[in-house]
């Protein structure tokens, strides 16, 4: 494999050098060529980084239908009308923080107090409270299993059971729990993912700061 890679590399470099030589049509300066080559590498590097992160298909996510929480307080918090199912885009908020978790996942269990803290932080600040809602999606969990998690860790935001692992359809990578997605609800009723984090939140304040910065950036 390494040999194939090396051959391929050599061939690509050779091809590049030849083309470059013919383009400038005169004496080839190797250092010059290498520089262009590395500039190309650097330009393409972000491509590598972003695709190694989590890839979310917003269209699919927009159309997923989950069982609505039975708890009235949870329904009210999310601003959902009556009905057994709902889409995430029906949640009344500008931003939705989605925690993909499992009752069976020890990392999620250990992270539960930090996520609670994150929710408390949001509730304390009116401008955040009015714009951001937090919802947990229990991947592979039944409503019963989700309720065991909710009671054990006194989770104050709604936890939705996703027994059929629907959320996987919106992710190109295999789900790892916990994963956090922050979606911005756009005027066209669709989601735009502005921030993702795979793995536990170490610090609730830091997470909030990172997400707010990301959602204010031109890309967000």
């Amino acid at each position: 494999m390494a040999q194939v890679k090396r051959c391929l590399n050599q061939w690509v470099v050779k091809l590049f050098l030849e083309s470059y030589e013919s383009l400038i049509g005169a004496n080839m300066n190797k250092a010059h060529v290498l520089m262009v080559f590395f500039i190309g590498l650097v330009l393409l590097a972000p491509e590598l980084v972003t695709s190694q992160e989590l890839a979310v298909n917003s269209n699919v996510l927009t159309n997923l239908k989950f069982d609505a929480p039975e708890n009235l307080a949870d329904k009210k918090y999310l601003g959902l009308h009556d009905g057994p199912i709902f889409k995430l885009t029906q949640i009344r908020a500008k931003f939705i923080i989605i925690e993909i978790f499992s009752m069976y996942c020890p990392i999620c269990q250990r992270d539960a107090p930090v996520v609670n803290e994150l929710h408390d932080l949001i509730l304390k600040v009116p401008s955040l409270r009015d714009n951001i809602k937090v919802v947990g999606i229990g991947v592979g969990n039944t409503p019963y299993e989700v309720s065991v998690f909710k009671n054990k860790f006194n989770v104050s935001f709604p936890l939705i059971a996703d027994d059929n692992i629907l959320i996987q359809r919106a992710l190109t990578n295999n789900i790892r729990t916990p994963t956090f997605l922050v979606g911005k609800l756009m005027a066209d009723g669709k989601f735009k993912i502005v921030f993702t984090k795979v793995g536990a939140i170490k610090n609730a304040g830091e997470f909030l700061k990172e997400f707010v910065t990301a959602s204010n950036s031109p890309r967000g």
Binding site: V12, E18, S19, S22, L44
Partner: peptide, 18 residues
């Protein structure tokens, strides 16, 4: 003409790399 050919080669190199 030769230049255009070379540009094409470089472009294809870049897409190949991507």
């Amino acid at each position: 003409m030769r230049k255009i050919q070379s540009v094409v080669v470089i472009m294809s190199f870049i897409s190949l790399w991507q």
